[in-house]
Each structure stands twice: as structure tokens, then as C-alpha cells.
Design a protein around this nucleic acid. Structure first.
Length: 480
RNA sequence: GGUGCGGUAGCCAAGUGGUAAGGCCGAGCUCUGCAAAAGCUCUAUCGGCGGUUCGAUUCCGCCCCGCACCUCCA
């Protein structure tokens, strides 16, 4: 079944498919700038892109998808951070790259096949700029910086409709934003390909035919994409804020340099809002994964919460949605155990790769349809829960389809990237707690209700809940 | 000023030209010595005003409100 995905350039849903004869799907996803911990809004984009990656793998085969996501490890922000902390740039970016990787892993995001860095591709960037200079799409300004000449590319603005915007420049914008480095540029909309060295850059400069300096932000992605995926890619993604100017500029550079279509498909996910506003430090509504974990929430709940809205619509995040996510996950887990029971499998078996090769979706077909149709995750979850409710009422009864259904269920979990295994780990209670529980169980058996109640109070005070069953009990820590 | 996107139950959020998925919360019931857990049930007429239509939340127009982008913030 073809995957349909909204294309930002044509503003319509289009089928995703590899354009080149080798059948490899080339997927480029703009990655993070590594100067601080990524916030949950950043992760919305990465989680959505992870779903796209998983979708592509199921559709085309895991070996037919090439996923590249870069790390921006040199720019104004990273340099400033290093300068402020008095550390080498590489130290700072290494620290935050590792943090980013840890967070991604916690959120169950598959690592990209290639994760190139800007500093690791200086030569490739210089080479591209060189071609643009030769073709007359770029010029060197008096200060030694090289700029892309926007007027040299007719297609400029197609992606973000920037031309309409240009007409109004100067009205509400007062021109202060352009003033910054407009002095050296021929035109305010021209943008830097190579930035001449400034003392603030410290040790972070490289040699080029135009003098010492560092690459501009946009050329990074063009160069890394070209190096690892070739002149034309199948899909280029990022957050909406990258639409302009980043992607518009990338498109211009790459097409002028390579003389061919840059990306067949563009996709942008919308922003995460907190309390109705975009997250920002000044509003104090910015969350990181660590902060949520410190509040007692699981990373998986965040992943779920981030997928509860349509990826192309702004999603309003709140702590309530984290509570909702934890509860929903719990109920998915419960039903999962029914599927496992019916198929004679364990929760861990849900994550074996064999399940993915099973062709059928059975009762999960509609859930699949929602995902394949422009990754409509909220609709998918709606349909998913409907199916779970039916399975719930069957309570793990074994049928002819039990194994197939188990596999189909596993595939849904795979595409959504929901890992139930953390919930499967039963926490071992300390010996003292177990002793109390044993005592209470004995009291209960001898119908000493008062004694049993007193012991329950002690357990509660110690932070544990004792769940009585028919033939025994289980202990679980109370929620914070 | 321009561009784009929204306003659906207490909260979050899908969707459709024919009388509104789902999740959370809440309420009631069942079960249970207690406590949980679990199961069942219940909870909206879709920002406002017009128009098109046999019929609109879904199409068109106007208005009100919100958000984002145009500032190297996913």
C-alpha cells in the first residue's frame, strides 16, 4: 500500500517512492544544533521523523531506506556557547551530541544510518561554494564573506512563497533584522555561504579560496546531503521553522550547484505549543526530557504524547497530556499481554524482527491505513484503541488468527515506536517490604482484617501498593 | 503589513455534505473483607452571522478569537 505524505512544495499529499533505479529511498532529515539539551518541541520533529523512517522501512524494506540526519556542530550558537564556557568547540558539541543520542534512545528513535557533522564536511561545502562561484550564483563581498545571489535563481521562493513576503519587507519589520549584515550584501535577501573570520569565532575557522572563515548554516545540509545521498534525494524533512529560510536556501544552492532537482518531496512537521504558546525560555514554558523524567514520567509517555496530535498541526502540550499518556500506555500494555497470552508469546517477543515480515494486518488494517495516509497518528491511535477494546473483551482467547494478530499488533507498535518492555520489568521490592507483605498476607489468610489493614497502611507509608489476587499478591511502587 | 494554520465535550484531539473517532479526567454500576486492578455504562451538535443545498460541523462569504512564520528557534 503506497505511503501518502503531504508535500510542502506542491502543498498536496503525494505518494512516497524511491525515484532511482536502485530502489533505495533517500531520506534527509535536518538534525539538531548541538549546544544545549534538545527540548521536547525538537523531539516532536524527531519522533515524527522516526515514524516516517519506520513507515518507509516497512513499506520498502529495511535495507532499502537510507536515512541521513546531520548534526550542526558549528554556528553562532555553538561557538558562543564554547566561548562563554571557555571550552573548545569540539568539547561542547561532543557533550551535547551524546546527550542528544541518549534522549533519542530513550524515546525509541532509530539512529539514522549516517549522521554527518558540519565540521566533518568543510571540504564538501567549500567545493559546492566553489561551483556556485564559477556558475555566477555567488559572489565574494568586501569583508571576505561569500553570499548566494538570490536573484540568480528563478525558482527562489517556491517553497516558502517568499516572493510575496519580500514585497512587504519594511512595513512591520522595520528593516532592523536585515540591517545586521546587509552592509556587505548586494541584496538583503542574499545569504551567507561562507562567513569571513571574526575575532569572536576564536579558533573555529578553516581555510578557503576566499580566506579564513567558516561555512554558513544552509550550505551544510546541501553538502552533506549531496555527499551521502547524491544530487537528488527522495525526501527532505524538518520542522516548519526551517521552511524559510533554511530549506528555501538549501534548495537554491543545491539546484544551482547540481543543475538538477534537489528533493522530490518536502515535509515539515508543526510546532509543539505549551499552554497555547510556542515554547521559549522567556515564557518559561520550555521542557526537556530530563525535566519530565524528574517529574516521574516515562520517556515513552512523552513519545506517545508527541504523537497524539496530527504532525502537521500545532499540538498543545501540557502535563495533563503526560498523565493521559501514561494511562493510555498502561492500557495498551494490558491488552498487549492478552495478545501475547493468546499467541503464547511474551512482551519481549513483540519486538523480534520476525513479526515485521508478517504480511497481514488483520484487525489493525484501519490503523495501518491512517498511518500510511499522511501519518495521521491521532486517527491511527483512535482506530488502534477500538481494536484493542475488542481484544480486551476477548481476554487473550486463542483463535486460528492469534499468531497473525500478534504479529500485526507488533507491527503497529513498531511503526509508532512504542516500546512496552520498560513496563514489563517488575520492580523487585526490598526485603523489608516483602516481609511486611508476607505478614499481611498471612493475616489476611487468617481473616485478621484489622491486622491486615494496619499492615497495608505501613506498606502505603513505605511507598508500596499491595495488590491482592486470588492466589497471591503483587507489589508495585506507588506513583510519585 | 504579508504569508500559512487553527477555533470540535472539563482537558488533549481525529473526522465527515446526511444528524460527531479515540485518549485522559469525572460520574454511576459490577466485582472485591479493605485497597487496588479490571469490566460495563454515561457525558458535545462542532467560534459567531449569513449564503449554497432536500440537508452543513464538513462548501462559500463576512466577522470575532488564537497560533506560527517573515529575526541562523524542530
Amino acid at each position: 500500500m503506497p505511503i501518502r505524505l503531504h508535500d510542502s512544495l506542491t502543498r498536496s499529499p503525494r505518494e512516497l517512492k524511491p525515484a532511482q533505479p536502485d530502489g533505495i529511498f533517500r531520506f534527509y532529515n535536518c538534525g539538531p544544533t548541538v549546544y544545549a539539551p534538545a527540548h521536547i518541541g525538537n523531539f516532536r520533529t524527531f519522533v515524527v521523523n522516526d515514524v516516517i523512517r519506520r513507515l518507509l522501512e516497512l513499506e520498502f524494506g529495511a535495507d532499502k531506506v537510507k536515512h541521513v540526519r546531520n548534526l550542526t556542530d558549528v554556528d553562532d550558537k555553538t561557538i558562543k556557547r564554547a566561548r562563554d564556557e571557555g571550552r573548545p568547540l569540539a568539547d561542547v558539541t561532543k557533550q551535547w551530541t551524546e546527550k542528544f543520542h541518549a534522549d533519542c534512545a530513550a524515546l525509541n528513535c532509530l539512529p539514522p544510518h549516517i549522521e554527518p557533522t558540519a565540521t566533518g564536511h568543510i571540504k564538501e561545502q567549500v567545493d559546492m561554494i566553489d561551483v556556485l562561484m564559477q556558475k555566477g550564483n555567488a559572489y565574494r563581498a568586501a569583508d571576505g564573506s561569500v553570499y548566494f545571489k538570490v536573484s540568480s535563481f528563478d525558482g527562489y521562493g517556491a517553497l516558502s512563497r517568499v516572493k510575496e513576503r519580500e514585497l512587504q519587507v519594511g512595513s512591520a519589520l522595520s528593516g532592523k533584522s536585515q540591517a545586521a549584515d546587509a552592509d556587505e550584501k548586494e541584496d538583503v535577501s542574499d545569504f551567507a555561504l561562507w562567513k569571513a573570520y571574526k575575532p569572536d569565532d576564536g579558533a573555529n575557522a578553516w581555510e578557503s579560496p576566499w580566506g579564513r572563515g567558516r561555512p554558513g548554516w544552509h550550505i551544510e545540509c546541501s553538502a552533506m546531503s549531496k555527499k551521502h545521498l547524491g544530487d537528488t534525494i527522495d525526501l527532505h524533512t524538518g520542522g516548519v521553522n526551517l521552511l524559510f529560510p533554511h530549506h528555501e536556501n538549501e534548495l537554491a544552492q543545491s539546484q544551482c550547484c547540481n543543475g538538477t532537482t534537489f528533493a522530490h518531496h518536502w515535509y515539515h512537521s508543526e510546532h509543539l505549543l505549551v499552554d497555547g504558546k510556542k515554547m521559549s525560555k522567556s515564557l518559561g514554558n520550555l521542557y526537556t526530557l530530563d525535566e519530565l523524567v524528574a517529574k516521574g514520567f516515562s520517556p515513552m509517555a512523552l513519545r506517545y504524547a508527541l504523537l497524539m496530535g496530527h504532525p502537521r498541526k500545532q499540538l498543545n502540550f501540557s502535563l495533563d497530556s503526560m498523565h493521559a499518556a501514561e494511562s493510555a500506555l498502561k492500557s495498551i500494555y494490558r491488552t498487549a499481554s492478552y495478545f501475547c497470552k493468546a499467541a503464547g508469546k511474551s512482551i519481549g517477543d513483540l519486538y523480534s524482527t520476525e513479526c515485521l515480515s508478517s504480511p497481514s494486518w488483520l484487525t489493525f488494517e484501519k490503523t495501518r491505513d491512517s498511518l500510511w495516509d499522511d501519518i495521521n497518528t491521532p486517527e491511527a491511535f483512535g482506530r488502534f484503541f477500538l481494536t484493542l477494546a475488542i481484544a480486551d473483551s476477548n481476554r487473550g482467547e486463542t483463535t486460528n488468527h492469534s499468531l497473525d494478530e500478534f504479529n500485526a499488533f507488533s507491527k503497529v507498535l513498531y511503526v509508532l515506536g512504542i516500546d512496552l518492555r520498560p513496563q514489563d520489568l517488575k520492580l523487585e521490592a526490598p526485603a523489608a517490604i516483602t516481609a511486611l507483605a508476607e505478614k499481611r498476607w498471612a493475616a489476611k489468610q487468617s481473616k485478621d482484617w484489622a491486622g491486615a489493614d494496619a499492615l497495608r497502611k505501613e506498606l502505603t507509608a513505605a511507598g508500596w501498593n499491595m495488590k491482592d489476587g486470588k492466589d497471591g499478591y503483587t507489589l508495585e511502587p506507588l506513583k510519585k
